[in-house]
Structures are given as structure tokens and as C-alpha cells.
Design a protein around this nucleic acid. Structure first.
Length: 1120
RNA sequence: GGGUGCUUAGCUCAGCUGGUUAGAGCUACUCGUUUACACCGAGUAGGCCGAGGGUUCGAAUCCCCCAGCACCCACCA
């Protein structure tokens, strides 16, 4: 029975949540005892969603919740289809974001990260994340997310870290990761490189400065012509008149189109040494050889740098002739292409060359880093300069600039000439790379801390923006400043996290060569191994995959995976005297083309201690050993033979000069005695450690092995299956393993650089074989371990600072996306023994469309690579030739829309228009909120969410509740046969084929609805599925069918008198009950993925058969 | 500059592979508390499905083009 009154979500939700969690329903291993035996487990089809890991320190917002609603509904639906479902949760360390947040935390206590030091900072930050992640995890539980929380992983979990570093190493070995020098976004405050996606733009008004680069020892010819002829009378000898035939240099014949043509007496064109030409307009009756005088009014300039003066009749003026001239030029454009007439009167003084280049810039302080001036190669104004180089005046000195032509320059913008500063502007770097010889090497004038360096002369040491202001004054004084446009609007790139302006800088970083990975990622979608929904987003995906941009994966932070790269000697990056960014290893500058071959080591282990080994020895013989009796932790002593043998061994060790610093022993007598004998001979101390004790064999201890094998085969058979079997009173192998693992980790820390001898037992030695020897569990058990047998394992100890190591580890950490980009692979590798085999490739990646380019693309780059490398181990084929269906990380990418506020504006903290999901859940119920994310929405489409919507869905839940109550009230005498409508109806005369019309209609309706819903669910049309269920339940089932059958259900009238007592009425009543029960069951099941709490609650209250599952979560989706 | 999505009732949105009279919720109005529910029921009103063109027996749906809005990517010297 359900309690009276309206539906109270908070009570039901707390109760259901506890029920689900207590029964471990979320684990894929769960099977209902009543439905399936665990023997069937491996055969079940698997369905997995790797959940997008939220930031470990963040509070979850509505966006996260909407994602969970979609992910969970898919999971719940698939679970009801009988699949083995895993929704794998995780938390992200969120690199720079968390580092900045935690630095602020520290600042509150008056500390900086430098005060703590790298290690302490990392540990503190780790703790900070772990503490905070509980909040997010509880919130995930609260929304009803049926994820297996036991499997939750943090991106910096040690199990994950090793796998991430392995990816770096594999990719390095495959040539997919390289060290390169490139311009990158640099945040001077964070002191780190940033990817474009770690930055954002801010609108700003910056003064746009026009200044002149004065040419020192060169005067443009056009300028000299102007200076010589503008407005002056010149004498011209006539050569040709209108209509005269002439032949061009390429042999084409033309008729002269203009009035006259001639040359200026006594003037030679220095470009070709020929007579300086003149076009004569407006004189009458001249003939060849005549000499005329006139005023030169303009230069006609052609792209082949051929200058002609136009001389005109003083009675006519050039403006009047302009149109006519242009028409003529157009007509003859084949020959005269690229002709410009420059009137002396309008001769440009300030917007382009005039004995120099006028440059427009917002960053004058970078002029010391200029290597060239670029112009549009087709820009007529700069033709005579192309390919030349000029000495120009800066404020304090002079420098030489090459003039290059590049299509990237927009001749319309500013003055059409662009200063090239390869070290401090992205676009400039690209242009400079296209013109290596003219523009490179770079001249970096701003240091990594954002101050000007030695190349900036008197500005050396100033902050860049300070230098900018000071320079304005100085430019004015030096006569360089032409004008300032103070209203200029531009966008400044800033650090997404700390909002400090980004300084583009050249720097050595590690890059991923994305070309082969992108090609593969593209192919996987093209060939349909991964589908992207909505369809339209495929294009965005392909566009990104087609952009051949390499990925800078290193960040200069502390919070993250420190890269497994080591330099032979001290390593530093610096700016040399010419402004070139270089690297130095062990004091030696790396040459530009060096491949670092002998100077780099890339690997998981510290190369400084590569030769170290750890020796592990078994204790000497005991009487029990002799007869094959199990000792375990039962304390037996070594026998006389053992003492003798140990003595001999100790002498041998001494003579071999093994150089042990320390002996660590199990505290049991047989090992401790063995250790002491050796220690005495070598003059060492013995330290004991409980974790080295033999496995506790519990009830097996004292038995002979033969006896034990007969009596307890389940504990003695050597196979992987009894790995987790705990012997009564004793330990499982797994337990031994974990204490030994802990021990190993400890001594790595504690006894760095000590050479250690371990004295222990065979069970423990087998763990060493697995952990350090890389042996499989089976191999580690394959051989008997003899008394006093020494096993040497490679054991690399961390380096301490006071040891001055040869190899220094790179201090950089990896970009967060490098790890989250492998997330499905990493989590499955780390979460359980067989999870990778069982669940990779996963089925669905569900996330917001805004994450497509950040995350999904990167997962499509890295996961297929990792999976392919895994396959390569067994079949030897190169990674890029592995089958797509095995390496694609997921079959479908479902991108949900973003939640907007009532006015269609994206919710954000700063706008304050966000809705607190927990407040809504409190007020209207989690199911109501979840329905609001789904109902009527379609894939990839943003949707508005506001309180009325949620309230409306609360009403729906209440309707469900009341209908449930009503049905239960009328099922009091209902005897459930089995949960099958047909047998339920058998006691009545209304069998399936001849139901009452109303029943028949309802029955048909729900069959159709179930079919439709299934189709919708299978084709990801969740919004429609939910809408149809909503409408059907409310308006067909509740409003129509229930109303119709009421009269058949009642056994008493309003006054309490019995009615419907005869046999026919009873049968009709039973039929109605059967249909009601059948439909309600079906609705609850179909609605469960959308509204899990209330459906479970009502379903629990309905009569159930013995065979039915414990929870609606494990009900069969099919209705019968 | 390149791209994507949207435009359907007063408002917010569905409408899958083209097929009877275009749907829902909210809002408005009318009526109704009869043993689930006023967080309700019965009903009414409200739409040349952005404009134009095409394909088709038939178009909100497919194609072309235009306009407006929103967003994404790149660039902004």
C-alpha cells in the first residue's frame, strides 16, 4: 500500500536510494537470484558508458545533472534489456584549473606554492581534491545515477598515472610525440604554456599606433621622382602619338591609346637605365620629335616597377581626365594590368611609404623583435620594395628588415604593411615560417616572466605594458609616431583560469604529431565504427580532424602527470644574445637541428638508478619444509641443516662484496634467524617488517600439503580463480599481495639508494615475482622456491636531491586532455581485472555538444591508438592497421543540448541566471527534474529550463502516484497468477482474443506504445519516448481507461451497499484488474529510466510473483 | 572569413523514414469538487508551420534560394 496524500519525493527518494545502494544493484556483476544465475554472467552482452569525469573539486551544476539524466536512462534501459551494464564514474584533476584554485586556497593562508615545494604541494592538492570529490560523488548518487561507485577513479590515481605515462612513452617511441620549438600561448602569471582552449578572449580598447620605420640609407624611387618633379615644369620629347602602332617587349602589337608619349630630356630611369618616360595628355598637334614643356602631375606606376610621368596641358586638369583614363586602362588591361596613377597632389604622406614604412600596431614594444615587414604581394604601393631589405630606425638604434610579400596580409587593413615579429605573434610566426630566410630566426624580446629583455635596450627589465606606455612618449620625441587611434577595438587573449593576458612566446615544448592520429579518427567515423549524433556535428568533427595542427601537451605546472622525460644533466631554456630561444643541457647549447639523441631518456623508471636490483631470499630449511607441512604464520624455526647452509651463504655473500646496506626480514623466527646469521657476517642490522610475513593459511596451518589438498581443494589449487578466496581464519592471496605492494612502495620512498636484501617466505616471493619481475600469476607459481634461493629483481629507486644525479627529470606536466583523452581505455585498464576485455569498446559516449571539440575529438585520437597498441602485442600488426571495430572507443556519440534559462541565455555563475538543481530536487523531486531534462527535447538541441516546467513534471509524478494508489486500492483481492496477462485472465471469460472493447482498446494501445517506446529508445529518441509515455499515461490510461473501468471495479456504492456481486460482474471486475495491473506494470517499467525513484516505489507496492526481480531496475523490459 | 543549428498557437517546444482534420505543456476563457488525484477532470479559443521557388498525386517534413536569430571555429597586425 502506498501512503495517503500527494507524492512526497524526498521520503521516497531517500528510501529507494538506500535500497539500491545496499543491494549493490549498480555493479555490472549484480544478478538477481530470482532471474539469473551468476554462471550466465560472462555471456551477457555488455553495455558501457564512460561517464565524463567532473572536476574533483567542483560542485555539480545543472549541466552535469542533465548529462547524468541521459547517461542513466540509457544505462537503466539497457539493464532492463538484460545487459551487463557499467556506468563508470570518475573525477578529473583538471590541471591548471585546480592548480589555480588551490593556489588561491593557499593564498588565504598567506602561503604560495613555492613555500610548500613541489612534492608537498602535490600531496596537499591531492588531499584537497579527494576531500572535495566526496561532495560531487554524493550529488551523483542523489540524482539517482546508477553508476558503479566502487569503480570510481580519479585521473591522478596511481593506477592511472602509470598508464598515462606509458602512453607518452609508446607515442614517443612511435614518433608521435616530439620535442619542438614553436610559438605558444604563454601565461606569465601561471608561467605555463596553454592550449588555445585554455584561453579566452576579452574585448578591449587598445591604442592603435601608427609609427614610421624610417629608411636610413635608401630613398624609394617613387619618392625621389616626386621630390624632383612634383609641380615643376619639365621638357619632354614626343615619341609617339595617338593611333601610332608600336610593339611591346613581348612582341605584341598595339595602337597607342593616349594622346602622346615621350621621354624627359636628360633623365634616365635608374631601374633599367633607359630614358625616363612621360605620357603627355591634352596637348594638340604635336608630332614626333617635338619638344614640349608641361607640369608633371602624377606618376603612373606599374607592377614591373616601370615609372612614367604624366605631363598634362595646364588648361586641363587630371581630375577631369581621371574617368577617361580609367576606361582606357581597363580596355588595355591585358597589357597594362596593375597600373596605378598616383597624383602628386594626393601623394600619400602618412598612410604608406614616404621614405619609410608606416606601420599600424597595438604592440609597439615588440618592434625590437621585428625581423621583416610583410605586405600583400599584389599591393601596388609596395612593389618596388619586395625582396629588398632596408635599414630602419627604431627608437634607440637601427635594425635591418626584409620586405616580404605574403597573401596573409590584408592590404585594406591599417597601412597594408605588417611588421613581422615571429616570437610574439601567432600569425607572424606562421608567416615567418613561410619565409624562413627573410624572417628567421626569431628575436624574442619579452622574457618568460613578461618583462622586456636586453634586446629592448633602455626598456630592458620593464614589464611589457609599461614599456609600451613609455615608448609612446619616446616615439613622439624621435619623430616616429604618426598618429594614435584611441578608439580601436580588439580582442585580447587571456588565461581562462587566472584572466591574465596571454603573451605569445616561442618555447620548446612537447608536441603530439596529430596527423596519423587524426587520419585514423576520421576514418573511424567515416567507416561508421563510431556514429556521431546529431548528424550535423559530424562536420564540426571532420573539420577539426582535417586541421593539421599539432598539439602542445606540456604545461609548466606542478599539478598533473610529470612527464617521463629525463635530460642528461641540468636542463634549461633561455633566450640567447640574439633573441633566439634555445635549450641547454649540461651547460651545452643544443644546436637548432639536434635530435637530443644521447641527451634524452624517455621511460617510466628513473634512469639514474637503472642498474639497481633488489635481492629477495627465502629463509633456510625448517623441519616443516622437510616434510611438507604448512607453516604459514605458525612460527617454526630453521633446523640445524638450515643454520649450516645459511652460514655458508653468508660467507659467500661477504666474499662477493654484494654491497648490501640493509637487511629487511619477516619477523617470523625462520626468516629472522636466517637474516640475523647473514647480517652478523656482513656487519649489518636487521629490520623486520610484518608485511613480509608468510600468508596466513588459517585452518590449513599445521596440515601437510597432501592433506590440505584433499580436504580443501578450493584453497590449494593453484589457479587464478582462488585469488580472492579467503581461507577461514587466514588470508586471501589478494590480501597478501596488497600488503606486499604497500611494502614495496614504502621502501622505494624510505630507503632510496640503499641496496637492500629481503628475507622472506615463498608466498611473499611470488608476489615480488609478479610485482617487480613482471611475471604472470601463473608463471610466479610455476616453480618451487628453494630455501635460501636468491631472486634478483630490477628495482629503481627515486633520486634525492643531495645525490646530484646524472639524469634530471623534465619538470613539465602533461595537459589534462592528454589523460582525459584516454579515459575509457584508462579506466577500464585500472578498474578491475577483466574490465578492459569485458567492456572495451564501450557503447555510448554521452556528453554536451560543447564538449565535442575539447574532449570527444581527443578521445578519438588517443583511445584507438592505445587499444591498437594492445592488439599489436598479440598480432604484431602496426597500430594504424588494427581493425576499427576493436579500437573505436565507443559506438555512438550522443551529444545533448545545453540547458538555457527562461530567456534562452546560457546559464552561468557570473550572470547569476543559473538554477540550483538541488533546490529543485528538494522542491519538486528528482524525478521531476530528470524528466525536465529529457521530455520533448531532441538530440543536440539546446533547451530552456525553468521552474514551471519542473513543477509540471512534478504534477505528472503526482498523477502516477495517485493512479498507483487507486489501482492498489482496487487490487485488494487480486490474486496474482504469474506475471503474465494471459494466465491472469484465465479465471475469467475474458480471454485475450475476446476482451471487453474498453480492455481490448487499452491492451492494443499499450502494446503499440511499448513497441514505439522500444523503437524510440533504440534510436536515441528519448525526448519523444518520454513525451509519448507522458501523454499516454495521463490522457489515455488515467483519464480514459481508469475512468471507464471504475464502475466495474467498485464493489460498494456511495452509501456502502454492496454492488457488482454476481458472477458476470465479478469476472468483468477481474478482467479490469488484470488489465490495470498489466498496464501499470508496463508503464512503470517504461518510465523507470526517466523517473527511477517513483517508479521503483510504486512497483515495489504492486503484487509481484516469486520469480520477479528484486528491483524494477532488473525487470525485463518486455511486457507479456 | 568558414561552419552549424533554429524560425510551427500569446509563451516554451515536439513533429522519426513526406500520407487523413498539424500536437503537447503553460497561459486565457467556460463548466465541474461523482469512493486516486485541484499538483484534478470535461470543454472552448488560438496556427496560410519565416518569405519565395522547385520535386511530388500529396510538403511543416525533401531540394534550391532569401531573410532574421542563435551558436561554434579561425582571424583581427
Amino acid at each position: 500500500m502506498l501512503p495517503k496524500g500527494p507524492y512526497k519525493p524526498s521520503e521516497t527518494e531517500a528510501e529507494m536510494l538506500k535500497f539500491w545502494l545496499d543491494h549493490n544493484f549498480y555493479a555490472p556483476e549484480y544478478t538477481s537470484d530470482r532471474e539469473l544465475s551468476s554462471a550466465h554472467l560472462p555471456e551477457r552482452e555488455s553495455f558501457m558508458i564512460t561517464l565524463p569525469p567532473p572536476n574533483a573539486n567542483g560542485n555539480l551544476h545543472l549541466g552535469h545533472m542533465s548529462g547524468y539524466a541521459y547517461q542513466d536512462l540509457m544505462g537503466r534501459y539497457q539493464r532492463m534489456l538484460g545487459k551487463k551494464v557499467l556506468l563508470l564514474p570518475g573525477k578529473d584533476h583538471a590541471g591548471i584549473q585546480t592548480e589555480v584554485v588551490f593556489e588561491k586556497e593557499l593564498a588565504k593562508k598567506g602561503k604560495s606554492k613555492k613555500d610548500l615545494g613541489r612534492e608537498t604541494f602535490y600531496k596537499a592538492c591531492y588531499k584537497f581534491c579527494m576531500d572535495n570529490s566526496a561532495t560531487a560523488r554524493n550529488q551523483e548518487k542523489k540524482i539517482g545515477l546508477s553508476a558503479d561507485f566502487e569503480r570510481e577513479l580519479f585521473t591522478l590515481d596511481p593506477k592511472i598515472v602509470d598508464e598515462v605515462l606509458k602512453a607518452f612513452i609508446l607515442m614517443y617511441e612511435d614518433g608521435l610525440i616530439y620535442r619542438g620549438k614553436r610559438i605558444i600561448n604563454w601565461c606569465p602569471r601561471c608561467s605555463s604554456a596553454l592550449a588555445d582552449i585554455d584561453t579566452e578572449f576579452k574585448d578591449s580598447q587598445s591604442p592603435f599606433i601608427y609609427f614610421k620605420y624610417g629608411l636610413i640609407d635608401a630613398e624609394p624611387y617613387a619618392v625621389s621622382l616626386k621630390n624632383k618633379f612634383a609641380g615643376k615644369e619639365i621638357e619632354v620629347t614626343v615619341e609617339r602619338s595617338k593611333g601610332d602602332k608600336f610593339t611591346t617587349k613581348n612582341g605584341e602589337e598595339y595602337q597607342w591609346p593616349f594622346d602622346y608619349y615621350g621621354y624627359i630630356a636628360g633623365e634616365k630611369n635608374p631601374n633599367d637605365g633607359e630614358d625616363l618616360d612621360a605620357w603627355i595628355l591634352g596637348f594638340d598637334n604635336l608630332k614626333k620629335g617635338d619638344k614640349v614643356t608641361g607640369k608633371a602631375e602624377a606618376i603612373m606606376m606599374r607592377f614591373d616597377k616601370d615609372y612614367k610621368l604624366i605631363v598634362i596641358n595646364p588648361e586641363k586638369n587630371l581630375n577631369e581626365l581621371q574617368d577617361e583614363l580609367e576606361k582606357l586602362f581597363l580596355h588595355y588591361c591585358k597589357h597594362f594590368a596593375g597600373v596605378h596613377i598616383i597624383k602628386f597632389a594626393d601623394y600619400p604622406e602618412d598612410k604608406f611609404y614616404n621614405n619609410g614604412f608606416i606601420i599600424g600596431t597595438v604592440r609597439p614594444e615588440t618592434i625590437f623583435g621585428d625581423t621583416a615587414i610583410a605586405v600583400d604581394p599584389d599591393d601596388w604601393r609596395y612593389q618596388e620594395f619586395l625582396g629588398k631589405s632596408f635599414a630602419v630606425r627604431t627608437i634607440t638604434s637601427t635594425t635591418k628588415l626584409n620586405i616580404i610579400g605574403d597573401q596573409a596580409v590584408d592590404s585594406e587593413f591599417g597601412t597594408g604593411s605588417l611588421k613581422i615579429t615571429p616570437a610574439h605573434a601567432m600569425e607572424d610566426w606562421d608567416i615567418a615560417k613561410r619565409h624562413q630566410t627573410e624572417c628567421m630566426p626569431e628575436k624574442q624580446v619579452i622574457n618568460f616572466d613578461g618583462t622586456m629583455n636586453h634586446l629592448a635596450g633602455k626598456y630592458n627589465g620593464m614589464k611589457a605594458d609599461e614599456a609600451r606606455k613609455t615608448m609612446l612618449e619616446d616615439m613622439k620625441t624621435a619623430g616616429m609616431l604618426i598618429s594614435i587611434d584611441t578608439a580601436y577595438e580588439n580582442r585580447i587573449r587571456i588565461c581562462e583560469r587566472c584572466k591574465h593576458p596571454i603573451e605569445p612566446l616561442v618555447s620548446h615544448q612537447w608536441f603530439v604529431d596529430t596527423k596519423p592520429l587524426k587520419a585514423k579518427a576520421k576514418e573511424l567515423v567515416e567507416q561508421g565504427f563510431t556514429e556521431i549524433m546529431p548528424e550535423g556535428k559530424k562536420k564540426t568533427y571532420f573539420d577539426w580532424m582535417n586541421t593539421p595542427e599539432d598539439w602542445c601537451i606540456t604545461r609548466q605546472l606542478w599539478w598533473g602527470y610529470r612527464i617521463p622525460v629525463w635530460y642528461k644533466g641540468t636542463h634549461e631554456q633561455f633566450i640567447d644574445e640574439n633573441g633566439v630561444v634555445r635549450e641547454k643541457i649540461a651547460g651545452k647549447t643544443i644546436s637548432e637541428n639536434s635530435d637530443y639523441q644521447d641527451l634524452l631518456y624517455v621511460g617510466l623508471d628513473n634512469p639514474n638508478s637503472q642498474s639497481e636490483t633488489l635481492d629477495v631470499i627465502r629463509h633456510a630449511e625448517t623441519d616443516n619444509n622437510h616434510i611438507g607441512r604448512i607453516s604459514g604464520q605458525n612460527d617454526s624455526q630453521i633446523n640445524a641443516n638450515g643454520v649450516t647452509q645459511t652460514g655458508l651463504l653468508a660467507k659467500k655473500l661477504k666474499s662477493e662484496n654484494t654491497g648490501y646496506d640493509l637487511i629487511i626480514s619477516s619477523p617470523l623466527k625462520r626468516t629472522y634467524t636466517t637474516a640475523t646469521i647473514i647480517a652478523k657476517e656482513l656487519g649489518l642490522e636487521v629490520i623486520t617488517d610484518d608485511r613480509l610475513k608468510e600468508r596466513n593459511f588459517g585452518i590449513l596451518e599445521g596440515l601437510l600439503w597432501q592433506e590440505a589438498e584433499l580436504k580443501y581443494p578450493e584453497f590449494t589449487s593453484a589457479n587464478d580463480a582462488n585469488y580472492q578466496e579467503t581461507i577461514p581464519g587466514g588470508e586471501s592471496i589478494q590480501e597478501v599481495e596488497s600488503r606486499v605492494q604497500e611494502f614495496i612502495a614504502d621502501i622505494k620512498q624510505k630507503y632510496a639508494h640503499k641496496k637492500i636484501l629481503i628475507v622472506t617466505h615463498s608466498g611473499v616471493i611470488r608476489v615480488f615475482k609478479r610485482e617487480l619481475g613482471g611475471e604472470t600469476p601463473a608463471a610466479s607459481r610455476a616453480h618451487e622456491i628453494n630455501n635460501l634461493e636468491i631472486n634478483s629483481f630490477p628495482f629503481r629507486l627515486p633520486v634525492t636531491d643531495n645525490r646530484s644525479p646524472i639524469w634530471n627529470q623534465d619538470s613539465d606536466v602533461l595537459d589534462t586532455w592528454f589523460s582525459s583523452g584516454q579515459w575509457p581505455y584508462l579506466t577500464l585498464k585500472a578498474s578491475g581485472v577483466n574490465d578492459y576485455q569485458d567492456f572495451y569498446p564501450t557503447q555510448v559516449m554521452e556528453t554536451g555538444w560543447d564538449i565535442l571539440l575539447f574532449w570527444v575529438t581527443r578521445m578519438m585520437l588517443l583511445n584507438p591508438y592505445r587499444a591498437a597498441k594492445e592488439l599489436q602485442k598479440s598480432n604484431g600488426k602496426p597500430w594504424d592497421q588494427q581493425p576499427g571495430e576493436k579500437i573505436a572507443p565507443f559506438k555512438d556519440v550522443y551529444l545533448h543540448g545545453l540547458v538555457l534559462d527562461k530567456n534562452g541565455v546560457k546559464m552561468s555563475k557570473s550572470k547569476g541566471n543559473g538554477i540550483d538543481p538541488f533546490e529543485m530536487m528538494q522542491k519538486y523531486g528528482t524525478d521531476a527534474l530528470r524528466l525536465s531534462f529529457i521530455l520533448g527535447n531532441s538530440v543536440g538541441q539546446n533547451y530552456r529550463l525553468y521552474e514551471e516546467k519542473i513543477a509540471n513534471n512534478r504534477n505528472f509524478c503526482n498523477k502516477l502516484w495517485n493512479a498507483g494508489k487507486f489501482i492498489l486500492m482496487n487490487l485488494e483481492d487480486f490474486e496474482l497468477r504469474i506475471s503474465n496477462l494471459e494466465s491472469q485472465l484465465r479465471a475469467t471469460s475474458y480471454q485475450l482474443p475476446n476482451l471487453l472493447p474498453a480492455d481490448q482498446e487499452m491492451y492494443n494501445h499499450i502494446q503499440q506504445l511499448h513497441q514505439d517506446t522500444t523503437r524510440r529508445m533504440d534510436s536515441f529518441q528519448f525526448g519523444i519516448a518520454a513525451q509519448e509515455l507522458y501523454d499516454s499515461f495521463w490522457h489515455t490510461f488515467a483519464d480514459i481507461y481508469i475512468e471507464k473501468v471504475k464502475s466495474r471495479l467498485y464493489t460498494k456504492d456511495r452509501e456502502g451497499n454492496p454492488i457488482n456481486q454476481d458472477e458476470a460482474a465479478q469476472q468483468s471486475r477481474k478482467a479490469a484488474q488484470a488489465i490495470l495491473y498489466f498496464c501499470m506494470n508496463a508503464y512503470l517499467k517504461m518510465l523507470h529510466p526517466f523517473a527511477p525513484f517513483i517508479t521503483e516505489k510504486i512497483w515495489q507496492a504492486l503484487p509481484k510473483s516469486e520469480q520477479e526481480a528484486e528491483s524494477i531496475m532488473y525487470c525485463k523490459w518486455k511486457i507479456k
